[in-house]
Design a protein around this nucleic acid. Structure first.
Length: 303
DNA sequence: TCTCAGGACCTAG
DNA sequence: CTAGGTCCTGAG
């Protein structure tokens, strides 16, 4: 019953607003600053403004009231989009309890990132975002995604006052770009070739979210890796952060070093990390990774 | 076939 | 010179 909420619509500074009460196990910073998304920015008042699914919205959360405020939205969008996007139907209390019971280390990580949510993001945008993430820094990733949206996405006209927000472009648009021009406009470097190739492959039906969810982990990852620019790490990130599969354990340098430090006290090969995660956390491996990542990154575990 | 090591790769700071 | 990998190559 921990995810039993009620939502209603009101108005706030001339914008429609949805207020959702009864939301617990929720924290905006934990959720938005844990490496899963690149289009949310923190405001001075602690709220976050983001561009998602062709819309711009601002969200705030009051822990004392367990109330989530979604500015510039309405009840239809809440039930059709945001409820799913913020994973509000999932009982994180139960997940946290299970993971905390696994061992002391995980219990600590869970209590540290107590308000983490795995966002169910758009598959296509997540795919491109994580192709860009390869061998790149976060500020740069954010810039490139912003550039791509400005140059090739539609301007979002409804809603937010200060304007200048652009939706992330569809694969049809990116698939026919000139690579040289794409590199110049996005500053995405050599990844631009991958993105164009991945767009074409995606449009041809090389991967489908629904099928990835139905098959086994190994086959799903293999299918993802048929796309250019997608290796094991990017494959797992895309599946986890788009709400496609939760049994994967995206392993970047940070997670690898953190797991080595916290669980092995020595270096181990990647496949051993995956095997370890699968054995230890099973179907909850993705959630475990997210709690561990946030905990390790914020506390500089693994340098 | 498969695993593994080594080097290249756009770009911004 | 490095950064939240991937791709390509050659060896075993």
């Amino acid at each position: 019953m921990t995810n039993d909420f009620k939502a209603y619509q009101t108005a706030n500074n001339g914008l429609n607003t949805v207020i959702v009460e009864g939301i617990c196990d929720f924290n905006l910073r934990h959720t938005f600053e844990s490496g899963q998304c690149f289009r949310w920015s923190r405001q001075d008042d602690g709220s976050y403004t983001g561009v998602v699914k062709g819309r711009v919205l601002n969200v705030a959360y009051a822990a004392d009231k367990q109330a989530l405020t979604i500015n510039n939205s309405n009840m239809d969008d809440f039930y059709n989009i945001w409820c799913d996007y913020f994973d509000l139907r999932t009982d994180y209390g139960a997940i946290k309890k299970k993971l905390s019971g696994v061992d002391e280390i995980m219990a600590k990580a869970v209590s540290y990132g107590y308000g983490l949510r795995l966002l169910r993001q758009d598959f296509w945008e997540t795919l491109v975002s994580f192709i860009i993430s390869a061998n790149n820094r976060i500020p740069s990733i954010i810039n490139i995604i912003s550039n791509i949206s400005k140059n090739y996405g539609d301007m979002i006209t409804s809603g937010y006052p200060d304007g200048g927000y652009f939706a992330f472009p569809q694969p049809e648009r990116l698939s026919c770009l000139n690579e040289r021009e794409f590199m110049l406009c996005s500053r995405g470097g050599y990844r631009c070739g991958y993105i164009i190739g991945a767009s074409k492959a995606y449009l041809s039906g090389a991967v489908k979210k629904e099928e990835l969810a139905l098959t086994d982990t190994v086959s799903a990852r293999k299918a993802m890796m048929s796309l250019p620019g997608v290796g094991p790490k990017v494959a797992d990130c895309v599946m986890l952060y788009s709400g496609t599969r939760y049994d994967v354990f995206p392993t970047d340098v940070w997670i690898k070093r953190a797991v080595e430090k916290l669980y092995f006290d020595k270096q181990v090969p990647l496949r051993q990390i995956h095997q370890f995660a699968s054995l230890k956390f099973g179907s909850l491996a993705g959630y475990a990774q997210q709690y561990l990542f946030f905990y390790a990154r914020e506390n500089n575990i693994g340098k």
